[in-house]
């Protein structure tokens, strides 16, 4: 290919990047716009930046700080809890033929099923055990996706650890449990970190379950953001500020796991 068409390729790539990131850039820029100027019916690109939208977010009117805290707590617990069962679980699945096939298929089905399938019964169960609108309740619901994801992704990492490592430990008289925690666990660390961050991102971005299962005490950042869209008006300034706050940490986390992103997103079908 000649030099000239190479330059065109770069121009095309830059244009594509600009188009696909326009919504995000737009919302970040708008979050610094004075409220009065957001809803003006003209295309204006100059304005004097302000933090009033962010201040509004943390004022008395909106308990946005609480939503953030709820989201952090819920994402952390659902992530760590899932890992606590998924590390031994995936080890069991990867090393023992008999349990493998059925459990693995079952876990993949849960990943594929739309959340709406679980919504009604989980809602009724939470009501029944009085965990509606509580952090433990929502954490439990989030296990429906964090646990299958964790088991499946860890499984692909476990398959890369050679069996000979375990066999030699076994000859030395180590039990299965010792092998898991002394030998497998340290080797699995990169996988655990990757799964941790991915679970965190999915929990943080979740909206549907949080919408159904929370009203006041356990409202998360996504539901909190959606609340700025009310029947009477839409608080665009606050929405843009809230969106910016919720998006930036996820983008940073993505870069931390990009090496394993493909594996996580395709449940290990492609590495």
């Amino acid at each position: 290919m000649n030099r000239k068409s190479k330059i065109w390729l770069y121009i095309l790539a830059v244009v594509v990047v600009l188009i696909f990131n326009f919504p995000l850039v737009f919302v970040i820029v708008t979050s610094f716009k004075p409220l009065g100027e957001i809803m003006l019916p003209n295309l204006k690109f100059t304005f004097s930046p302000t933090l009033e939208n962010y201040k509004m977010l943390f004022s008395e009117t909106f308990p946005f700080g609480k939503y953030i805290l709820n989201s952090i707590t819920i994402s952390l617990i659902s992530t760590i809890g899932a890992l606590a069962v998924a590390v031994p679980g995936s080890y069991g699945i990867s090393r023992f033929g008999k349990v493998k096939k059925n459990v693995a298929f079952w876990i993949l089905s849960i990943r594929m099923a739309p959340p709406v399938v679980f919504a009604l019964p989980l809602f009724l169960i939470l009501k029944w055990i009085k965990l509606i609108d509580t952090i433990p309740g929502l954490v439990m619901v989030y296990f429906t996706f964090t646990v299958p994801l964790s088991i499946w992704i860890l499984n692909t990492f476990l398959m890369e650890i050679p069996k000979s490592v375990e066999e030699s430990a076994m000859i030395d008289g180590a039990t299965r449990g010792q092998i898991l925690y002394r030998i497998i666990f340290p080797l699995l660390m990169p996988g655990i970190v990757a799964v941790f961050i991915m679970n965190f991102i999915f929990s943080w971005n979740e909206f549907f379950f949080a919408l159904l299962m929370t009203m006041d005490r356990a409202v998360t950042i996504t539901v909190g953001t959606a609340r700025f869209v009310t029947g009477y008006s839409i608080y665009w300034g606050a929405i843009c500020a809230a969106s910016t706050i919720s998006v930036i940490p996820m983008i940073i986390m993505t870069f931390l796991v990009q090496k394993y992103l493909v594996r996580g997103l395709t449940m290990g079908a492609i590495k």
Partner: peptide
């Protein structure tokens, strides 16, 4: 390596998923 009880590592996951995914489905049914 085949017959040492590997399934016990899977128990916590199966119980948890049974509670949050299988039981709700049966309830729905």
């Amino acid at each position: 390596m085949r017959n040492d009880r590997g399934w016990r590592f899977v128990i916590p996951s199966v119980i948890l998923l049974g509670f949050v995914a299988l039981f709700p489905f049966i309830f729905s049914l």
